[in-house]
């Protein structure tokens, strides 16, 4: 079963992406709960804080980083609720910066 073997191998190798945990129809700027806010635009950068679907953000700028869901762009932003500033994959946000870092 070639396809199954490939699928499993990838599952074991993946380890450090930010991912959501909960569905809730809150009207915030993160698509998921527990979105990691990192010190830089890659999945090995330090986690500075977490974003929740109830939180809003102030986008600052964007730059390239680790590809998440086929997308390389990460947004530097300030979490309005926690005051933490850092990067998250743009795939986990619903508001994005218009200017490049």
């Amino acid at each position: 079963m070639r396809k199954a073997a490939r699928f499993t191998a990838v599952a074991l190798s993946a380890a450090t992406i930010a991912l959501g945990t909960v569905t809730a129809a809150h009207a915030g700027d993160y698509t998921e709960n527990g979105v990691r806010i990192r010190s830089n635009s890659n999945t090995s950068a330090a986690v500075l804080g977490l974003g929740y679907t109830s939180h809003t953000i102030t986008p600052i700028c964007y730059q390239a980083g680790t590809v998440i869901n086929g997308n390389k762009w990460w947004d530097k932003h300030r979490n309005n609720n926690t005051g933490v500033t850092g990067f998250s994959s743009m795939t986990l946000l619903t508001k994005w910066a218009s200017g490049h870092c």
């Binding site: 396809k3 699928f7 499993t8 990838v10 190798s13 998440i68």
Partner: peptide
């Protein structure tokens, strides 16, 4: 044909 135990494992896989 997809061998995966949990959606969370798969969700992690989706990213990379």
């Amino acid at each position: 044909g997809f061998q995966v135990k949990t959606p969370w494992e798969l969700q992690q896989m989706e990213g990379t």
